[in-house]
Design a protein around this nucleic acid. Sequence first.
DNA 1: TGTACATCAGTGAACGCGCGTTCACTGATGTAC
DNA 2: TGTACATCAGTGAACGCGCGTTCACTGATGTAC
Lengths: 213, 213
Amino acid sequence: MAPNDTVEKILHAATLLFAERGFSETSLRTITGMAEVNLAAVNYHFGSKKALIQAVFSRFLGPMSAKLDTALDDLLESHAENELSTNVLLSCLFSVIMEVTEEIGEDPQRFMRLLGLAYAQTQEHMRHFIVDNYGDTYHRFLDLLDNSLPGLSPVEFYWRLYFMMGAAVFTLSSFEAIRSILNADYQQDMTMNEVVELMIPAIGRLLGNPGET
Amino acid sequence: MAPNDTVEKILHAATLLFAERGFSETSLRTITGMAEVNLAAVNYHFGSKKALIQAVFSRFLGPMSAKLDTALDDLLESHAENELSTNVLLSCLFSVIMEVTEEIGEDPQRFMRLLGLAYAQTQEHMRHFIVDNYGDTYHRFLDLLDNSLPGLSPVEFYWRLYFMMGAAVFTLSSFEAIRSILNADYQQDMTMNEVVELMIPAIGRLLGNPGET
DNA sequence: TGTACATCAGTGAACGCGCGTTCACTGATGTAC
DNA sequence: TGTACATCAGTGAACGCGCGTTCACTGATGTAC
């Protein structure tokens, strides 16, 4: 197939296994075994296990920051900057995540789990990696979100932002496990999209949006 | 000193190192090195690394569930059950966490980090461990919290509960890292207690409490 | 009171295993003259 | 058109290392008769 079929096979298996077990808990032998690829291929193509982990993230975050940028452009064409509501911005972000994961051919849950694992392990590393590589889009989004919440002091906004990230990343990164408990206890099933729709108004209220109850 | 000085030294070092680096990333050699104790002592006293991890959690969760139980008794003596507000219940929970960590002589941040790491890695394992060992207190608290939020459907309550746990566990488990970014960007400092006081009304709103903005 | 035995906390050294990484090598494809 | 060389993806086997766990052993304290 494509000249770098091997690279893609490794990235796919690594995404799947890292999301399922964690980074330290997944060995290169398990990854290359699942990808049906030689063990040495990881170090040949990526250089090290650490570099493979970064490549797994870049595969998602590159397209996402590009797509979020043009989505924000579109929104700003049809709305004045201070007309953009909190919930519209959050919806926009989640749509981008859903679209890009589908384009790449990975489950959005797996991406959220990777995010959750990375954040839990090393808050600072992760933030540096994102700010260094995708800082422009990241800050642009945060500024728009801040503007959608008038009358909030910078420090209040700062903390509520982390409350929000916690609620979203934590819930969606464990989505599969939480969903199966829901199934067992309430005999009810929900998709990630349905949960995101429950979540957006809830974290809107969390951020300070009066909103609906 | 006490006959089981060694056990306590191991538990303390393990708490500290697991919280700092993660479970897989911390070796028994590092733990016994810091505790100034023989390598074989971990397997002698606890049986395995896995059992040590469980013991580290039980050291916190045992006293916490006992103390939360009596604290809820006290609240129910002075208030009718349906007079207990969401925010009072949340304050009660956080007070218990702060008190018990102080009694044990561990930093509350370290306990929150352990919780965060455990939840991120294995949502289901962790929930089973808690429900199996401390299920009565756990469900009692959730029922009271549910009652403090009238008019919420079970499924809505269910999901908002996870949003809440995410906001709280994620933020407090990375408290040190988030605080240092605050320091750098806004030249302002905050204690965990101050952040908890910001957080309680915010997650009260998240849960559906109309509350103040 | 004295002796034999049991219990228990702790130790030092070794065990086998799986890990990430390295290295010499292969074979196919492309490029220069 | 033919030949020599370079590049590149990939491979098989081995490297040394750190890991959790085990085991035979020690030495102090407690118990039975």
